[in-house]
Design a protein around this nucleic acid. Structure first.
Length: 511
RNA sequence: GGUCCGUUCGUCUAGGGGUUAGGACACCAGAUUUUCAUUCUGGUAACACGGGUUCGAUUCCCGUACGGACUACCA
Protein backbone atom coordinates (compact mmCIF):
# COMPACT_ATOMS: atom_id res chain seq x y z
CA UNK A 1 0.00 0.00 0.00
CA UNK A 2 1.22 3.42 -0.78
CA UNK A 3 2.29 5.99 1.72
CA UNK A 4 -0.63 7.89 3.21
CA UNK A 5 -0.52 11.54 2.30
CA UNK A 6 -3.63 13.58 2.99
CA UNK A 7 -4.36 17.24 2.68
CA UNK A 8 -6.66 19.77 4.22
CA UNK A 9 -7.24 22.41 1.61
CA UNK A 10 -9.36 25.33 2.76
CA UNK A 11 -9.75 28.57 0.90
CA UNK A 12 -9.03 31.75 2.82
CA UNK A 13 -12.38 33.40 2.19
CA UNK A 14 -13.25 33.90 5.84
CA UNK A 15 -13.13 32.12 9.15
CA UNK A 16 -12.83 28.36 9.19
CA UNK A 17 -16.24 26.74 9.54
CA UNK A 18 -16.66 24.07 12.23
CA UNK A 19 -17.40 21.54 9.49
CA UNK A 20 -14.01 22.34 8.04
CA UNK A 21 -12.46 21.52 11.38
CA UNK A 22 -14.08 18.10 11.24
CA UNK A 23 -12.78 17.53 7.72
CA UNK A 24 -9.32 18.52 8.89
CA UNK A 25 -9.68 16.19 11.87
CA UNK A 26 -10.57 13.13 9.78
CA UNK A 27 -7.62 13.82 7.50
CA UNK A 28 -5.38 14.26 10.48
CA UNK A 29 -6.53 11.07 12.19
CA UNK A 30 -5.87 9.00 9.10
CA UNK A 31 -2.45 10.57 8.64
CA UNK A 32 -1.44 9.92 12.22
CA UNK A 33 -2.81 6.42 12.33
CA UNK A 34 -1.08 5.38 9.14
CA UNK A 35 2.12 7.21 10.03
CA UNK A 36 1.47 9.31 6.99
CA UNK A 37 1.74 12.99 6.20
CA UNK A 38 -0.75 15.76 6.89
CA UNK A 39 -0.55 18.57 4.39
CA UNK A 40 -2.09 22.02 4.55
CA UNK A 41 -2.70 23.63 1.20
CA UNK A 42 -4.29 27.02 0.82
CA UNK A 43 -6.65 27.25 -2.13
CA UNK A 44 -6.64 30.92 -2.87
CA UNK A 45 -7.20 30.96 -6.59
CA UNK A 46 -10.17 33.27 -6.35
CA UNK A 47 -8.66 36.68 -5.98
CA UNK A 48 -12.03 38.35 -5.62
CA UNK A 49 -12.92 36.41 -2.51
CA UNK A 50 -9.65 36.78 -0.71
CA UNK A 51 -10.11 37.88 2.89
CA UNK A 52 -7.13 39.28 4.73
CA UNK A 53 -6.36 37.43 7.92
CA UNK A 54 -8.25 34.31 6.93
CA UNK A 55 -5.16 32.24 6.27
CA UNK A 56 -3.63 33.14 9.60
CA UNK A 57 -6.97 32.37 11.21
CA UNK A 58 -6.95 28.87 9.71
CA UNK A 59 -3.43 28.31 10.99
CA UNK A 60 -4.33 29.56 14.46
CA UNK A 61 -7.48 27.45 14.58
CA UNK A 62 -5.73 24.23 13.65
CA UNK A 63 -3.06 24.97 16.18
CA UNK A 64 -5.61 25.57 18.91
CA UNK A 65 -7.45 22.30 18.36
CA UNK A 66 -4.18 20.47 18.15
CA UNK A 67 -4.16 19.43 14.52
CA UNK A 68 -0.53 19.63 13.54
CA UNK A 69 0.66 20.03 9.99
CA UNK A 70 3.63 18.11 8.63
CA UNK A 71 3.90 19.81 5.32
CA UNK A 72 2.36 22.89 3.81
CA UNK A 73 1.69 26.56 4.37
CA UNK A 74 3.44 27.70 7.52
CA UNK A 75 5.85 24.77 7.65
CA UNK A 76 7.07 24.29 4.08
CA UNK A 77 8.03 20.98 2.52
CA UNK A 78 9.29 19.25 -0.61
CA UNK A 79 6.35 20.33 -2.74
CA UNK A 80 6.36 24.03 -1.90
CA UNK A 81 4.82 26.41 -2.52
CA UNK A 82 1.58 25.22 -0.88
CA UNK A 83 -0.37 28.35 -1.61
CA UNK A 84 -2.07 27.91 -4.95
CA UNK A 85 -1.78 31.53 -5.93
CA UNK A 86 1.98 30.96 -5.94
CA UNK A 87 1.77 27.97 -8.25
CA UNK A 88 0.28 29.74 -11.23
CA UNK A 89 3.02 28.80 -13.65
CA UNK A 90 2.60 25.13 -12.79
CA UNK A 91 -1.10 25.13 -13.66
CA UNK A 92 -0.42 27.06 -16.83
CA UNK A 93 2.00 24.39 -17.92
CA UNK A 94 -0.47 21.57 -17.31
CA UNK A 95 -3.30 23.43 -18.96
CA UNK A 96 -1.04 23.82 -21.98
CA UNK A 97 -0.45 20.07 -21.94
CA UNK A 98 -4.18 19.56 -22.28
CA UNK A 99 -4.35 22.01 -25.17
CA UNK A 100 -1.48 20.25 -26.88
CA UNK A 101 -3.03 16.84 -26.49
CA UNK A 102 -6.36 18.12 -27.79
CA UNK A 103 -8.20 17.56 -24.53
CA UNK A 104 -8.50 21.21 -23.70
CA UNK A 105 -9.36 24.23 -25.78
CA UNK A 106 -9.44 28.01 -25.68
CA UNK A 107 -12.75 29.77 -25.33
CA UNK A 108 -13.32 33.46 -25.94
CA UNK A 109 -16.96 33.80 -25.07
CA UNK A 110 -17.94 36.77 -22.97
CA UNK A 111 -20.14 36.52 -19.93
CA UNK A 112 -22.97 37.96 -22.02
CA UNK A 113 -22.53 35.39 -24.73
CA UNK A 114 -22.60 32.60 -22.22
CA UNK A 115 -25.69 34.02 -20.64
CA UNK A 116 -27.35 34.25 -24.04
CA UNK A 117 -26.50 30.64 -24.78
CA UNK A 118 -28.03 29.50 -21.51
CA UNK A 119 -31.15 31.56 -22.04
CA UNK A 120 -31.57 30.15 -25.50
CA UNK A 121 -31.20 26.59 -24.32
CA UNK A 122 -33.60 27.10 -21.46
CA UNK A 123 -36.13 28.62 -23.81
CA UNK A 124 -35.65 25.53 -25.93
CA UNK A 125 -36.60 23.32 -23.00
CA UNK A 126 -33.15 22.18 -21.94
CA UNK A 127 -33.04 21.45 -18.24
CA UNK A 128 -29.40 22.05 -17.61
CA UNK A 129 -27.82 24.40 -20.11
CA UNK A 130 -24.26 23.33 -20.52
CA UNK A 131 -21.17 24.26 -22.39
CA UNK A 132 -20.67 20.77 -23.76
CA UNK A 133 -19.98 18.64 -26.77
CA UNK A 134 -23.06 20.03 -28.51
CA UNK A 135 -23.02 23.67 -27.58
CA UNK A 136 -19.30 24.19 -27.93
CA UNK A 137 -19.72 23.90 -31.68
CA UNK A 138 -21.72 27.10 -31.64
CA UNK A 139 -19.50 29.16 -29.38
CA UNK A 140 -16.37 31.17 -29.95
CA UNK A 141 -13.55 28.84 -29.16
CA UNK A 142 -10.49 27.23 -30.66
CA UNK A 143 -12.60 24.35 -31.91
CA UNK A 144 -14.84 26.55 -34.01
CA UNK A 145 -12.52 29.40 -34.94
CA UNK A 146 -9.79 29.08 -37.55
CA UNK A 147 -6.32 28.57 -36.08
CA UNK A 148 -5.07 31.94 -37.32
CA UNK A 149 -7.97 33.70 -35.70
CA UNK A 150 -7.29 31.94 -32.41
CA UNK A 151 -3.67 32.93 -32.57
CA UNK A 152 -4.57 36.50 -33.46
CA UNK A 153 -6.99 36.76 -30.55
CA UNK A 154 -4.52 35.41 -28.05
CA UNK A 155 -1.69 37.57 -29.37
CA UNK A 156 -3.89 40.63 -29.26
CA UNK A 157 -4.48 40.01 -25.56
CA UNK A 158 -8.14 39.11 -25.85
CA UNK A 159 -9.39 37.49 -22.65
CA UNK A 160 -9.84 33.75 -22.85
CA UNK A 161 -10.32 30.72 -20.69
CA UNK A 162 -9.19 27.14 -21.17
CA UNK A 163 -11.91 24.53 -21.00
CA UNK A 164 -11.82 20.78 -20.71
CA UNK A 165 -13.11 18.93 -23.74
CA UNK A 166 -15.34 16.45 -21.99
CA UNK A 167 -15.99 13.27 -24.00
CA UNK A 168 -19.48 13.03 -25.46
CA UNK A 169 -20.67 9.73 -24.13
CA UNK A 170 -18.85 7.81 -21.56
CA UNK A 171 -19.74 6.42 -18.18
CA UNK A 172 -17.49 7.95 -15.55
CA UNK A 173 -17.15 5.85 -12.43
CA UNK A 174 -15.37 6.33 -9.17
CA UNK A 175 -15.18 4.17 -6.12
CA UNK A 176 -15.81 6.39 -3.13
CA UNK A 177 -14.53 4.94 0.13
CA UNK A 178 -17.70 5.98 1.91
CA UNK A 179 -20.35 5.61 -0.78
CA UNK A 180 -19.10 2.84 -2.99
CA UNK A 181 -19.37 3.12 -6.72
CA UNK A 182 -20.72 6.39 -8.01
CA UNK A 183 -21.22 6.78 -11.70
CA UNK A 184 -22.19 9.71 -13.85
CA UNK A 185 -22.56 9.95 -17.57
CA UNK A 186 -20.15 12.34 -19.22
CA UNK A 187 -23.05 14.00 -21.01
CA UNK A 188 -24.02 15.41 -17.62
CA UNK A 189 -20.67 17.06 -17.16
CA UNK A 190 -19.97 20.27 -18.94
CA UNK A 191 -16.76 21.61 -20.40
CA UNK A 192 -15.59 23.12 -17.16
CA UNK A 193 -13.33 26.12 -17.19
CA UNK A 194 -9.86 25.05 -16.12
CA UNK A 195 -7.98 28.32 -16.49
CA UNK A 196 -9.79 31.56 -15.84
CA UNK A 197 -9.26 34.68 -17.88
CA UNK A 198 -7.26 36.21 -15.07
CA UNK A 199 -4.68 33.49 -15.48
CA UNK A 200 -5.64 31.63 -12.34
CA UNK A 201 -6.78 28.03 -12.42
CA UNK A 202 -10.19 26.98 -11.17
CA UNK A 203 -10.54 24.64 -8.22
CA UNK A 204 -10.92 21.65 -10.51
CA UNK A 205 -7.61 22.02 -12.28
CA UNK A 206 -5.61 23.22 -9.31
CA UNK A 207 -6.89 20.49 -7.03
CA UNK A 208 -6.14 17.68 -9.46
CA UNK A 209 -2.72 18.97 -10.45
CA UNK A 210 -1.70 19.60 -6.86
CA UNK A 211 -3.02 16.32 -5.50
CA UNK A 212 -1.08 14.53 -8.18
CA UNK A 213 2.11 16.52 -7.74
CA UNK A 214 1.91 16.31 -3.96
CA UNK A 215 1.32 12.55 -4.19
CA UNK A 216 -1.90 12.69 -2.23
CA UNK A 217 -3.18 9.20 -1.42
CA UNK A 218 -6.62 10.04 -0.03
CA UNK A 219 -8.87 12.97 -0.78
CA UNK A 220 -11.13 13.37 2.24
CA UNK A 221 -13.47 16.29 1.72
CA UNK A 222 -17.09 17.38 2.09
CA UNK A 223 -19.98 15.84 0.22
CA UNK A 224 -20.51 19.04 -1.68
CA UNK A 225 -17.64 17.90 -3.90
CA UNK A 226 -19.23 14.62 -4.86
CA UNK A 227 -20.98 15.93 -7.99
CA UNK A 228 -17.73 17.26 -9.39
CA UNK A 229 -15.66 14.22 -8.48
CA UNK A 230 -16.35 12.51 -11.84
CA UNK A 231 -15.01 15.60 -13.55
CA UNK A 232 -11.85 15.23 -11.53
CA UNK A 233 -11.59 11.61 -12.61
CA UNK A 234 -11.84 12.79 -16.19
CA UNK A 235 -9.01 15.21 -15.54
CA UNK A 236 -6.76 12.55 -14.07
CA UNK A 237 -7.49 10.49 -17.12
CA UNK A 238 -6.76 13.37 -19.48
CA UNK A 239 -3.38 13.82 -17.86
CA UNK A 240 -2.68 10.10 -17.95
CA UNK A 241 -2.56 9.90 -14.17
CA UNK A 242 -5.37 7.48 -13.63
CA UNK A 243 -3.12 4.93 -11.96
CA UNK A 244 -1.91 7.49 -9.45
CA UNK A 245 -5.34 8.86 -8.67
CA UNK A 246 -5.98 9.32 -4.96
CA UNK A 247 -8.80 7.47 -3.27
CA UNK A 248 -11.86 9.57 -2.58
CA UNK A 249 -13.89 9.82 0.60
CA UNK A 250 -16.77 12.28 0.55
CA UNK A 251 -17.88 13.15 4.05
CA UNK A 252 -21.53 13.57 5.03
CA UNK A 253 -22.50 17.15 5.70
CA UNK A 254 -23.08 18.83 9.03
CA UNK A 255 -26.72 19.83 9.12
CA UNK A 256 -28.55 22.54 11.02
CA UNK A 257 -29.98 21.41 14.39
CA UNK A 258 -33.59 22.08 13.49
CA UNK A 259 -35.16 21.89 10.11
CA UNK A 260 -33.03 20.91 7.18
CA UNK A 261 -30.02 22.06 5.28
CA UNK A 262 -26.37 22.64 5.70
CA UNK A 263 -25.29 24.12 9.01
CA UNK A 264 -24.73 27.82 8.55
CA UNK A 265 -23.45 30.68 10.61
CA UNK A 266 -26.95 32.05 10.65
CA UNK A 267 -28.32 28.93 12.38
CA UNK A 268 -25.55 29.04 14.92
CA UNK A 269 -26.19 32.70 15.68
CA UNK A 270 -29.89 32.13 16.01
CA UNK A 271 -29.49 29.20 18.40
CA UNK A 272 -26.68 30.82 20.29
CA UNK A 273 -23.68 28.62 19.68
CA UNK A 274 -20.40 29.28 17.90
CA UNK A 275 -19.72 28.22 14.34
CA UNK A 276 -16.04 29.10 14.25
CA UNK A 277 -13.25 27.65 16.36
CA UNK A 278 -11.85 31.03 17.33
CA UNK A 279 -13.47 34.42 17.62
CA UNK A 280 -13.50 36.05 14.23
CA UNK A 281 -13.90 39.65 13.29
CA UNK A 282 -15.05 40.07 9.75
CA UNK A 283 -12.72 42.64 8.20
CA UNK A 284 -15.46 43.96 5.92
CA UNK A 285 -18.44 44.19 8.20
CA UNK A 286 -16.52 44.45 11.48
CA UNK A 287 -18.96 41.91 12.79
CA UNK A 288 -17.55 39.74 15.58
CA UNK A 289 -18.44 36.06 15.88
CA UNK A 290 -17.52 34.35 19.12
CA UNK A 291 -15.48 31.18 18.79
CA UNK A 292 -15.55 27.83 20.55
CA UNK A 293 -12.36 28.71 22.36
CA UNK A 294 -13.82 31.91 23.76
CA UNK A 295 -17.09 30.20 24.66
CA UNK A 296 -15.15 27.89 26.93
CA UNK A 297 -14.89 24.70 24.91
CA UNK A 298 -11.84 22.58 25.49
CA UNK A 299 -10.12 21.63 22.23
CA UNK A 300 -10.00 17.94 23.11
CA UNK A 301 -13.71 17.95 23.92
CA UNK A 302 -14.55 19.72 20.68
CA UNK A 303 -12.52 17.22 18.69
CA UNK A 304 -14.15 14.28 20.43
CA UNK A 305 -17.57 15.72 19.71
CA UNK A 306 -16.74 16.48 16.08
CA UNK A 307 -15.24 13.04 15.51
CA UNK A 308 -18.56 11.47 16.48
CA UNK A 309 -20.54 13.55 14.02
CA UNK A 310 -20.54 11.10 11.15
CA UNK A 311 -18.18 8.51 12.56
CA UNK A 312 -18.34 6.02 15.40
CA UNK A 313 -16.02 3.31 16.65
CA UNK A 314 -18.66 0.57 16.71
CA UNK A 315 -18.33 0.20 20.47
CA UNK A 316 -20.15 1.95 23.28
CA UNK A 317 -17.15 4.03 24.26
CA UNK A 318 -17.84 7.74 23.77
CA UNK A 319 -14.92 9.49 25.39
CA UNK A 320 -11.84 9.33 23.24
CA UNK A 321 -8.58 11.17 23.60
CA UNK A 322 -7.00 12.24 20.34
CA UNK A 323 -4.60 9.31 20.70
CA UNK A 324 -7.50 6.91 21.10
CA UNK A 325 -9.30 8.46 18.15
CA UNK A 326 -6.17 7.97 16.11
CA UNK A 327 -6.14 4.31 17.04
CA UNK A 328 -9.82 3.69 16.48
CA UNK A 329 -10.49 5.79 13.40
CA UNK A 330 -11.35 4.22 10.09
CA UNK A 331 -12.88 5.62 6.93
CA UNK A 332 -15.07 2.52 6.61
CA UNK A 333 -16.94 3.50 9.75
CA UNK A 334 -17.89 6.93 8.50
CA UNK A 335 -21.63 7.16 7.93
CA UNK A 336 -23.34 8.23 4.74
CA UNK A 337 -26.10 10.46 6.01
CA UNK A 338 -25.73 14.05 7.11
CA UNK A 339 -25.50 14.70 10.83
CA UNK A 340 -27.50 17.32 12.63
CA UNK A 341 -25.43 19.48 14.85
CA UNK A 342 -26.43 19.14 18.51
CA UNK A 343 -24.73 21.63 20.76
CA UNK A 344 -26.07 19.85 23.87
CA UNK A 345 -23.83 16.92 23.11
CA UNK A 346 -20.88 19.24 22.69
CA UNK A 347 -21.60 20.69 26.11
CA UNK A 348 -21.77 17.24 27.61
CA UNK A 349 -18.38 16.35 26.16
CA UNK A 350 -16.97 19.56 27.51
CA UNK A 351 -18.32 18.81 30.95
CA UNK A 352 -16.77 15.34 30.87
CA UNK A 353 -13.39 16.66 29.88
CA UNK A 354 -13.52 19.43 32.42
CA UNK A 355 -14.36 17.04 35.20
CA UNK A 356 -11.49 14.79 34.30
CA UNK A 357 -9.02 17.53 35.13
CA UNK A 358 -7.32 17.87 38.50
CA UNK A 359 -8.39 20.49 41.03
CA UNK A 360 -5.11 22.28 40.40
CA UNK A 361 -5.75 22.53 36.67
CA UNK A 362 -9.28 23.68 37.28
CA UNK A 363 -8.07 26.28 39.77
CA UNK A 364 -6.04 27.82 36.95
CA UNK A 365 -9.23 28.52 35.06
CA UNK A 366 -10.67 30.30 38.04
CA UNK A 367 -7.47 32.25 38.58
CA UNK A 368 -7.56 33.37 34.96
CA UNK A 369 -11.10 34.69 35.35
CA UNK A 370 -10.15 36.43 38.57
CA UNK A 371 -7.19 38.08 36.96
CA UNK A 372 -9.50 39.63 34.40
CA UNK A 373 -11.69 40.88 37.22
CA UNK A 374 -8.69 42.18 39.11
CA UNK A 375 -9.40 40.03 42.10
CA UNK A 376 -6.52 38.43 43.92
CA UNK A 377 -6.81 34.94 45.30
CA UNK A 378 -4.36 32.45 46.69
CA UNK A 379 -3.69 29.28 44.80
CA UNK A 380 -4.86 27.28 47.82
CA UNK A 381 -8.21 28.99 47.94
CA UNK A 382 -8.69 28.61 44.20
CA UNK A 383 -7.99 24.88 44.43
CA UNK A 384 -10.53 24.54 47.22
CA UNK A 385 -13.18 26.36 45.23
CA UNK A 386 -12.41 24.31 42.13
CA UNK A 387 -12.79 21.14 44.16
CA UNK A 388 -16.23 21.99 45.49
CA UNK A 389 -17.51 23.27 42.15
CA UNK A 390 -16.13 20.82 39.65
CA UNK A 391 -19.22 18.60 39.67
CA UNK A 392 -21.45 21.43 38.60
CA UNK A 393 -19.59 23.26 35.85
CA UNK A 394 -19.67 22.87 32.09
CA UNK A 395 -17.24 25.58 31.08
CA UNK A 396 -14.04 26.93 32.65
CA UNK A 397 -15.58 30.34 33.16
CA UNK A 398 -18.37 28.80 35.24
CA UNK A 399 -16.07 28.66 38.26
CA UNK A 400 -16.15 32.43 38.36
CA UNK A 401 -19.59 32.99 36.87
CA UNK A 402 -21.26 30.65 39.33
CA UNK A 403 -18.94 31.23 42.23
CA UNK A 404 -18.77 35.00 42.51
CA UNK A 405 -20.01 34.76 46.06
CA UNK A 406 -16.70 33.25 47.08
CA UNK A 407 -15.24 36.68 46.50
CA UNK A 408 -17.89 39.18 47.42
CA UNK A 409 -21.15 39.42 49.29
CA UNK A 410 -24.29 38.91 47.22
CA UNK A 411 -25.66 42.03 45.58
CA UNK A 412 -29.09 40.49 45.35
CA UNK A 413 -30.92 37.52 46.73
CA UNK A 414 -32.84 34.75 45.01
CA UNK A 415 -36.44 35.90 45.32
CA UNK A 416 -37.96 32.46 45.24
CA UNK A 417 -35.91 31.22 48.16
CA UNK A 418 -36.44 34.43 50.11
CA UNK A 419 -40.18 34.20 49.69
CA UNK A 420 -40.25 30.62 50.86
CA UNK A 421 -37.57 30.39 53.49
CA UNK A 422 -36.85 33.85 54.85
CA UNK A 423 -38.93 34.29 57.96
CA UNK A 424 -38.68 35.45 61.56
CA UNK A 425 -37.62 32.08 62.81
CA UNK A 426 -34.82 31.84 60.29
CA UNK A 427 -33.57 35.30 61.11
CA UNK A 428 -33.54 34.41 64.78
CA UNK A 429 -31.42 31.34 64.13
CA UNK A 430 -29.13 33.19 61.77
CA UNK A 431 -28.44 35.93 64.24
CA UNK A 432 -27.73 33.41 66.95
CA UNK A 433 -25.48 31.49 64.56
CA UNK A 434 -23.65 34.69 63.71
CA UNK A 435 -22.99 35.36 67.38
CA UNK A 436 -21.82 31.81 67.86
CA UNK A 437 -19.45 32.02 64.90
CA UNK A 438 -18.06 35.29 66.25
CA UNK A 439 -16.74 33.46 69.27
CA UNK A 440 -14.74 31.02 67.15
CA UNK A 441 -11.12 31.73 66.35
CA UNK A 442 -11.40 30.26 62.84
CA UNK A 443 -14.20 28.62 60.96
CA UNK A 444 -13.89 25.41 58.98
CA UNK A 445 -16.56 23.10 57.65
CA UNK A 446 -16.63 21.03 60.82
CA UNK A 447 -16.80 23.91 63.29
CA UNK A 448 -19.39 25.69 61.17
CA UNK A 449 -21.54 22.61 61.23
CA UNK A 450 -21.07 22.14 64.96
CA UNK A 451 -21.97 25.76 65.64
CA UNK A 452 -25.06 25.58 63.53
CA UNK A 453 -26.24 22.43 65.21
CA UNK A 454 -25.57 23.90 68.60
CA UNK A 455 -27.66 26.95 67.82
CA UNK A 456 -30.58 25.09 66.28
CA UNK A 457 -30.61 22.62 69.12
CA UNK A 458 -30.69 25.43 71.64
CA UNK A 459 -33.58 27.10 69.86
CA UNK A 460 -35.21 23.77 69.21
CA UNK A 461 -35.53 24.27 65.47
CA UNK A 462 -34.66 21.75 62.75
CA UNK A 463 -31.45 22.65 60.97
CA UNK A 464 -33.00 21.83 57.63
CA UNK A 465 -35.65 24.46 58.08
CA UNK A 466 -33.20 27.34 58.06
CA UNK A 467 -30.38 26.02 55.93
CA UNK A 468 -31.73 27.56 52.77
CA UNK A 469 -32.10 30.91 54.49
CA UNK A 470 -28.50 30.73 55.61
CA UNK A 471 -27.40 29.83 52.10
CA UNK A 472 -29.25 32.70 50.52
CA UNK A 473 -27.90 35.14 53.08
CA UNK A 474 -24.36 34.02 52.34
CA UNK A 475 -24.47 33.48 48.59
CA UNK A 476 -27.66 35.06 47.36
CA UNK A 477 -28.46 31.82 45.56
CA UNK A 478 -30.74 28.89 46.19
CA UNK A 479 -28.29 26.24 45.12
CA UNK A 480 -24.60 25.54 45.16
CA UNK A 481 -21.90 23.42 46.72
CA UNK A 482 -21.91 22.20 50.28
CA UNK A 483 -22.71 25.16 52.49
CA UNK A 484 -20.28 24.19 55.23
CA UNK A 485 -17.46 24.18 52.71
CA UNK A 486 -18.57 27.55 51.42
CA UNK A 487 -18.37 28.91 54.95
CA UNK A 488 -14.92 27.44 55.40
CA UNK A 489 -13.75 29.10 52.21
CA UNK A 490 -15.20 32.57 52.79
CA UNK A 491 -14.21 32.60 56.48
CA UNK A 492 -15.55 33.91 59.74
CA UNK A 493 -15.43 37.60 58.93
CA UNK A 494 -17.51 37.24 55.78
CA UNK A 495 -20.03 34.95 57.43
CA UNK A 496 -20.74 37.47 60.13
CA UNK A 497 -20.90 40.44 57.81
CA UNK A 498 -23.06 38.73 55.20
CA UNK A 499 -25.61 37.53 57.73
CA UNK A 500 -25.82 41.05 59.12
CA UNK A 501 -26.13 42.45 55.61
CA UNK A 502 -28.88 40.05 54.64
CA UNK A 503 -30.85 40.67 57.80
CA UNK A 504 -30.65 44.38 57.15
CA UNK A 505 -31.61 44.13 53.48
CA UNK A 506 -34.28 41.46 53.51
CA UNK A 507 -37.59 42.32 55.04
CA UNK A 508 -39.16 39.73 57.20
CA UNK A 509 -42.59 38.75 56.17
CA UNK A 510 -44.69 38.88 59.29
CA UNK A 511 -46.65 35.72 59.53
C1' G B 1 -36.25 21.36 -13.36
C1' G B 2 -31.80 18.05 -14.16
C1' U B 3 -27.70 15.03 -12.05
C1' C B 4 -25.78 12.78 -7.82
C1' C B 5 -26.20 11.34 -2.66
C1' G B 6 -29.02 9.98 1.44
C1' U B 7 -33.36 8.07 5.05
C1' U B 8 -33.10 3.29 12.53
C1' C B 9 -35.80 6.80 19.05
C1' G B 10 -36.33 14.46 19.36
C1' U B 11 -30.57 14.23 18.30
C1' C B 12 -25.75 11.30 17.43
C1' U B 13 -25.77 6.32 16.23
C1' A B 14 -25.10 0.34 16.76
C1' G B 15 -27.10 -3.65 14.35
C1' G B 16 -28.47 -6.69 10.50
C1' G B 17 -33.09 -11.83 6.82
C1' G B 18 -35.75 -14.75 12.48
C1' U B 19 -33.25 -9.50 18.14
C1' U B 20 -37.45 -7.86 24.08
C1' A B 21 -34.07 -3.41 17.61
C1' G B 22 -28.62 -1.92 21.69
C1' G B 23 -25.83 2.54 23.50
C1' A B 24 -25.11 7.90 24.25
C1' C B 25 -27.17 13.08 24.56
C1' A B 26 -31.71 15.38 25.72
C1' C B 27 -36.32 14.68 28.32
C1' C B 28 -39.43 12.53 32.42
C1' A B 29 -39.85 9.86 37.25
C1' G B 30 -37.80 7.78 41.76
C1' A B 31 -33.54 7.27 45.23
C1' U B 32 -29.36 9.72 47.45
C1' U B 33 -27.77 14.87 48.43
C1' U B 34 -31.68 18.72 54.64
C1' U B 35 -30.70 22.94 48.62
C1' C B 36 -28.94 22.99 43.36
C1' A B 37 -25.68 20.04 40.71
C1' U B 38 -23.45 15.23 40.80
C1' U B 39 -24.34 10.00 41.31
C1' C B 40 -27.61 5.73 41.02
C1' U B 41 -32.12 3.30 39.31
C1' G B 42 -36.09 3.27 36.11
C1' G B 43 -39.06 5.28 32.03
C1' U B 44 -41.06 7.58 27.32
C1' A B 45 -39.25 7.08 22.38
C1' A B 46 -37.13 4.68 16.06
C1' C B 47 -36.35 0.88 11.41
C1' A B 48 -40.29 6.95 5.86
C1' C B 49 -44.05 4.48 2.59
C1' G B 50 -45.52 0.79 -1.26
C1' G B 51 -44.31 -3.34 -3.98
C1' G B 52 -41.37 -7.52 -4.75
C1' U B 53 -37.50 -11.75 -3.33
C1' U B 54 -38.16 -15.12 0.89
C1' C B 55 -41.00 -19.85 5.14
C1' G B 56 -39.75 -14.99 7.23
C1' A B 57 -37.81 -8.49 5.89
C1' U B 58 -36.19 -3.08 9.56
C1' U B 59 -32.09 -5.68 7.07
C1' C B 60 -31.67 -7.61 -0.07
C1' C B 61 -34.01 -5.49 -4.90
C1' C B 62 -37.29 -1.92 -7.35
C1' G B 63 -40.36 2.15 -7.05
C1' U B 64 -42.58 6.41 -4.28
C1' A B 65 -42.15 10.14 -0.78
C1' C B 66 -39.14 13.22 1.83
C1' G B 67 -34.43 15.54 2.63
C1' G B 68 -29.70 17.26 1.02
C1' A B 69 -25.62 18.58 -2.26
C1' C B 70 -24.40 20.21 -6.98
C1' U B 71 -26.02 22.70 -11.31
C1' A B 72 -20.26 29.99 -11.96
C1' C B 73 -14.31 32.34 -15.37
C1' C B 74 -16.54 30.32 -6.18
C1' A B 75 -14.16 26.99 -3.62
Amino acid sequence: MREVRVRFAPSPTGALHIGGVRTALYNYLLARQQKGTMILRIEDTDQTRYVPGAEQYILDSLKWVGITIDEGVGVGGPHAPYRQSERQSIYKQYAQQLIDSGQGYYAFDTAEELEQMREKLKAGGVDTPQYNSITRTQMRNSLTLPAEEVKRLIDSGAPYVIRLKVPRKEEVRLNDLIRGWVSVHSSQIDDKVLMKSDGMPTYHLANVVDDYLMKISHVIRGEEWLPSAPLHVLLYRAFGWENDMPQFAHLPLLLKPDGNGKLSKRDADQLGFPIFPLTWKDPHTQEVAKGYREAGYLPEALLNFLAFLGWNPGTTQELFSVEELTQAFSIERIGKAGAKFDIHKAQWFNQQYLRAKSDEELAEFLLQSLQKENISCSKEKAVKIAAVMKERVTFPQDFWEQGKYFFHAPAEYDQGVVAKKWNEEAVKVLLAFKDEVSTLSTVDAATAKASLEKVTAALNIGTGKILQALRVSLTGAGGGPDLMMIMEIIGKQEIVQRIEGAVKTLKVKVA
